[in-house]
Design a protein around this nucleic acid. Structure first.
Length: 906
RNA sequence: GGGAGCAUGGCGGAAUUGGUAGACGCAGCGGACUUAAAAUCCGCAGACGGCAACGUUGUGGGGGUUCAAGUCCCCCUGCUCCCA
């Protein structure tokens, strides 16, 4: 494709805008004005299709660079900028290296903000979302991201969620989607249920922050527990993931090995009944110390086994517990409460009769909903037993110690068994195995692997989400909507008051349908899906985003995926990343794709923090603009000294920096360079205006450097400074000292930057290498001949191109001698090849040899680079340094590290 | 309580396999240019002592391994995150 209309006038295309350049003294040369070049290049790249995804042919080297797609809130913040700039640099580097790159973008567009906006302002959530998408796309484009917008997806558009529904039906068909009555997390503010992953460690909703309540409701679940073992095992494949994230997922899945043991319920006379209570324990070795059994208040046997005398107390207790959150029930600092239900069980290990209790700290959803209470060896049981005066029986003691030594608390460490009949004297590790085996042989237990992970609750009682495509029929039950009737579109006109139940349920015309099976009147499902369902497969859709017959073709998905580099926030370490891994495995098992893991490498970028001022007395945050003197920050109202620190940018702390303002002032290239340079990508980044200024100065220096080269008449036309020209010049004659220095700087930069962009991404040091190269060019360029000067210029610009794409492109044009109207597809700097380092340019004749005396550095010598060990030792011993510090003594030991140092040990 | 990670100048951060600690930048200081300022250019800069040459010391604290430790091992302290 040709650039139809030259938008720039070539070298010196920048108009001398008097407003921005009041100084007449520089009128001879142009100035770096990013505002004047960036939008033009963005449009030119777009029109020339520079970021279109190339078609993949067999054997092609493909690279998939992906950012976590944003929720279209309408406002781009610095966290987004950091995320997308990092991914963009990765994508651009891979293109320069000759890879075929897929770098897409889309919108995680269902969810509550749109619905809340609709409630508050009476707007249509779809229209509101589309408007936000348009404005955010515009903001993203100002960053100069090399995104292929042809593959854009929005999860709230029917051409996308149609396939979310289609995939849901696959889950349903394979028995992995089901409905059940369950005690679930209820968010009283957002009026909907939440998945366990969406409740934080304080028992609050990840979105609204409300304290989550428990409710018993009929809900849809996905059987992620079926994949618990695989999700855990395959973490070991993910060596391109941060260790941290892998540990977090492993903890979340929470595999523990233990045993299920059965306690027989006895009647009032002490005779065995047919009823048994199965407990799960990770400590079968302590069964002889069990002094009671506890059921969750919700356990089905509670009603059946409670005796008449205890009925009132038990009912009252269950009522009390039902109003508590899971957090309140299990928090370690809360007292544990319980009541006996009157019945007893027989301990299968020693035939003792022990009472059955119910207690708040036992949860129906975990394990079997029943545990054995062993006060001597579990701290929670110990506190419970002490409170209710239940017996405490030591059954494990450290070898050689006294059984009464630990009566102040539970002994939870290892030891040997006592009071355990035939198992006495066994180390407790062995006893776990022995007791479990005995239980299995005698029919009262078995080994059991337990996961902490629970099934994923995916239904939501909200409007703005993907409708669950099933129909409830009185005679046929749950009937999937036939695939050819998808999508089940979200109906218009729902009342989104945000109170009580699914808004869709009120739309009778929509709800009432005939059963696809029997034709009788039936009702649609009125819950919508958790938005995490929509985001669990979007990365697959990008491979084939416009397919109208399938979510993606097998061919496309298998040739582009898995994602080579995924970039996003650590906050998704569990939620999105776990769900996506689960989806991938299910779809693999359904034959829809051919890989086990969706994301090969993961980079979790740190937060962007803003400078924050807080009055320590009033607790109020003060806007930086209101602080008169940043070196002595004071409250403008009271004059009190303020606390200064860096914290994640947020409106309420007045510490945010708007990307648009920064781009207006300095341009996107400066913003990109700053963000990449200021901190390593995975660390938090402190936004600092002075550093941004410094970054802008660096880009200006590069501009002036190239400008000077232009004035000198240097041009990169016809391959000047390219590899062939360099080879010829090297063959033709020797280099002057400046040329040698310059070439060393150029090829050091290539080596170091290539290294920094390989494997572990170290953009910060890559940028500093660019600065070193530009510094060296400032020193040496004028003393260098044309060929080597051009080699340096060419290299600098290509190395700079992924970081500051607009500036590099503009300067490339300035030096190219070509017309701005030439086809960009091949002439753009972004269509060039990453330079190769010439090792011979790094070779030195002499090196600096460090002389150490007894391990301390005492000086250095210039020595021939090829000197052997014996020569180095001789030179060191003969040196003034040795003479001064050895005082005539002969060293007893000499360590020589060629090229580095000689250590003389007297 | 269990697990993971981190700790380097005034600040952000660099430092192959252990081999000159502090690259690069910000802030600072000195100088040049300017009537002046801004911008730009050149230079200085861990701390302590010294006019200087130079010396001592120095990567949270303590110990160890080694010719040599920011880097490896052990203990401690502090911070961050995850799980309880």
């Amino acid at each position: 494709m040709l650039c139809s209309e030259p938008w720039s006038e070539g070298c010196g295309s920048i108009a001398h805008t008097p407003l921005l350049d009041p100084s007449p003294s520089v009128s001879e040369s142009s100035r770096y004005q990013p505002q004047a070049i960036e939008t033009g290049w963005q449009r030119a790249w777009q029109e020339n299709g520079l970021h279109d995804t190339p078609e993949l042919k067999p054997g092609d080297d493909a690279f998939y660079a992906l950012s976590m797609f944003p929720y279209p809130s309408g406002n781009l913040h610095m966290g987004h900028v950091r995320n997308y700039v990092i991914t963009d640099v990765v994508a651009r580097v891979q293109r320069l290296r000759g890879k075929k790159v897929l770098h897409p973008m889309g919108w995680d567009a269902f969810g509550l903000p749109a619905e809340n906006a609709a409630i508050e302002r009476g707007v249509d959530p779809g229209a509101w979302t589309d408007q936000n998408i348009a404005s955010m796309r515009e903001q993203l484009n100002q960053l100069g991201l090399s995104i292929d917008w042809e593959r854009e997806v929005a999860t709230c558009h029917a051409d996308y969620y149609r396939w979310t529904q289609w995939l849901f039906l696959h889950f349903l068909d394979s028995g992995l989607a089901y409905q059940k009555d369950a005690t679930v997390n209820w968010d009283p503010i957002d009026q909907t249920v939440l998945a366990n992953e969406q409740v934080d460690s304080e028992g609050r909703s990840w979105r609204s922050g409300a304290l989550v309540e428990k409710r018993k409701l009929r809900q849809w679940f996905l059987k992620i527990t079926d994949y618990a073992q695989q999700l855990l095992d395959d973490l070991s494949q993910l060596d391109g993931w941060p260790e941290r994230v892998r540990t977090m997922q492993a903890n979340w899945i929470g595999r523990s090995t233990g045993a299920e043991l059965q306690f027989t319920v006895v009647d009032a006379a002490g005779h065995d009944t047919a009823e048994r209570i199965t407990v799960f324990t990770t400590r079968p070795d302590t069964i002889f110390g069990a002094s009671y059994v506890v059921l969750a208040p919700e356990h089905p046997l509670v009603a059946e086994l409670t005796t008449a005398e205890q009925e009132i107390a038990v009912e009252a207790f269950c009522d009390l517990v039902s109003r508590q959150s899971e957090q309140e029930r299990t928090a370690e600092d809360k007292p544990k409460r319980g009541v006996p239900i009157g019945a007893q069980v027989r301990n299968p290990a020693n035939d003792e009769l022990i009472p059955i209790w119910i207690a708040d700290y036992v949860l129906a959803e975990y394990g079997t909903g029943a545990v054995m209470g062993v006060p001597a060896h579990d701290q929670r049981d110990f506190l419970f037993a002490r409170q209710y005066e239940l017996p405490v029986q030591q059954v494990i003691i450290p070898e050689g110690s006294d059984e009464h030594a630990f009566e102040g608390g539970a002994w939870t460490e290892g030891g040997v068994l006592i009071h355990s009949g035939r198992f006495d004297g066994l180390p407790n590790g062995d006893a776990k195995q022995a007791i479990t085996s005995a239980a299995a042989a005698e029919g009262w237990g078995q080994e059991k692997v337990q996961f902490r992970l629970r099934d994923w609750l995916i239904s939501r009682q909200r409007y703005w989400g993907c409708p669950i495509p099933v129909i409830h029929c009185d005679s046929c039950g749950v009937v999937p909507v036939p695939a050819d009737q998808l999508p089940v579109e979200l109906p218009q006109g729902a009342n989104l008051a945000g109170k009580g139940g699914s808004p869709l349920a009120q739309l009778e015309n929509w709800v009432n349908v005939s059963c696809p099976c029997c034709g009788q009147p039936a009702k649609r499902e009125t819950d919508t899906m958790d938005t995490f369902m929509c985001s669990s497969w979007y990365y697959l859709r990008y491979s084939d985003a416009t397919n109208t017959t399938r979510p993606f073709s097998e061919d496309a998905v298998n040739s582009w995926l898995p994602v080579d580099q995924y970039v996003g926030g650590i906050e998704h370490a569990i939620l999105h990343l776990l769900y996506s891994r689960f989806f991938t495995k299910v779809l693999r098992d359904r034959g829809l794709l051919g890989f086990d893991e969706p994301f090969q490498r993961l980079l979790t970028q740190g937060m962007v923090q803003g400078i924050t001022y807080k009055n320590p007395h009033t607790g109020k945050y003060i806007a930086p603009a209101d602080v008169a003197d940043p070196t002595d920050p004071r409250d403008p109202a009271s004059g009190e000294v303020l606390e200064t620190f860096y914290e994640k940018m947020s409106k309420s702390k007045y510490n945010g920096v708007d990307p648009a303002v920064v781009i207006d002032k300095y341009g996107a290239d400066t913003a990109r360079m700053f963000i990449l340079f200021k901190a390593p990508p995975e660390k938090d980044l402190e936004w600092d205006d002075a550093d941004v200024e410094g970054q802008f100065r660096f880009l200006q220096r590069i501009w002036r450097l190239v400008d000077g080269a232009c004035e000198r008449g240097l041009s990169l036309a016809a391959g000047a400074g390219g590899p062939e020209a360099v080879v010829q010049a090297l063959a033709a004659g020797s280099l002057n000292p400046a040329e040698q220095e310059l070439r060393r700087a150029v090829h050091t930069a290539i080596t170091e930057i290539s290294d920094d962009l390989d494997g572990d991404y170290q953009f910060n040091t890559a940028v500093s290498e660019l600065m070193k190269l530009s510094n060296a060019m400032g020193t040496h360029l004028e003393n260098c001949g044309e060929v080597f000067a051009c080699e340096a210029l060419r290299t600098l610009l290509i190395l700079l191109a992924p970081f500051a794409p607009h500036l590099a492109e503009e300067l490339w044009l300035k030096l190219s001698g070509r017309n701005a109207g030439d086809a960009l597809a091949s002439s753009s700097i972004h269509a060039q090849r990453w330079p190769a380092a010439d090792a011979s340019a790094l070779v030195r004749d002499t090196v600096t040899l460090v002389i150490q005396i007894k391990g301390k550095v005492r000086g250095n010598l210039e020595v021939p680079a090829d000197a052997d060990k014996a020569t180095l030792e001789k030179l060191a011993l003969e040196s003034d340094i040795a003479a001064k510090w050895l005082e005539g003594k002969t060293p007893s030991r000499v360590i020589v590290v060629p090229g580095k140092l000689v250590n003389l040990v007297p």
